[in-house]
C-alpha cells in the first residue's frame, strides 16, 4: 500500500473537531497507516498559508487540513477561512509544479472517528500513488 516508501504527511487538525475525531478513531481501535502526524491547532482558522507552503518546502509529501463541519466551527468562521486558504495554496502548488492533490481540506465532526481513519487511509494511498515529493519533476525544491 505504501508503494515502497514511507510518506510524511502533516495533518493540521483543529482541537474541537478533527483532533477529537482522531481521538475517537483511537478509542474505537480503528486502523490507519502511521504515515500521518498531527499538529494540533486551536482552530484551522489559525493555519496560515505560509505554513502550508513551509510544510512542502521542508519536505512533506502531503498535507491535510481538517476542521469542523461547515456551520459548526467552534470559532464561528475559522474553518471557512482555512478552506479558502487551502484552495489558494493548491493553486500556488500547481504553479510551483507540485501536484495540488498533495494538499487537501476536510470537514469532519468530532463524532466521525471512522471518517478520520478513512481520510488518513485515503490520503496515504493518494500520496503513495504520487510518490515522494522530490520525485515530482518540476518541483523547484528538487535539487537532487
Amino acid at each position: 500500500m505504501n508503494n515502497g516508501f514511507e510518506s510524511k504527511i502533516v495533518a493540521f487538525c483543529c482541537h474541537y473537531c478533527a483532533f477529537a475525531a482522531a481521538d475517537l478513531a483511537g478509542v474505537l481501535r480503528l486502523k490507519y497507516p502511521p504515515d500521518l502526524r498531527i499538529i494540533r491547532l486551536p482552530c484551522t482558522g489559525k493555519l496560515d498559508t505560509l505554513f502550508l507552503l513551509k510544510a512542502f518546502e521542508k519536505g512533506a509529501d502531503g498535507v491535510l487540513v481538517a476542521g469542523c463541519l461547515e456551520g459548526s466551527c467552534h470559532f464561528i468562521s475559522g474553518n471557512l477561512r482555512a478552506k479558502k486558504r487551502v484552495l489558494a495554496v493548491k493553486n500556488l502548488l500547481e504553479r510551483l509544479g507540485i501536484e495540488k492533490e498533495r494538499l487537501e481540506f476536510f470537514n469532519l465532526s468530532s463524532a466521525q472517528g471512522e471518517r478520520f481513519a478513512q481520510i488518513a487511509r485515503e490520503m496515504t494511498e493518494r500520496i503513495a500513488k504520487l510518490g515522494p515529493l522530490r520525485s515530482s519533476g518540476r518541483c523547484p525544491y528538487d535539487r537532487g
Partner: peptide
C-alpha cells in the same frame, strides 16, 4: 495512545517510530 498505539497496533515498529 489514541494517535499511535491504539491505531497502529498491527505495526508495532512503525508505531514506535511514530
Amino acid at each position: 495512545r489514541e494517535q499511535c498505539s491504539w491505531v497502529h497496533g498491527d505495526q508495532p515498529e512503525r508505531a514506535t517510530e511514530k
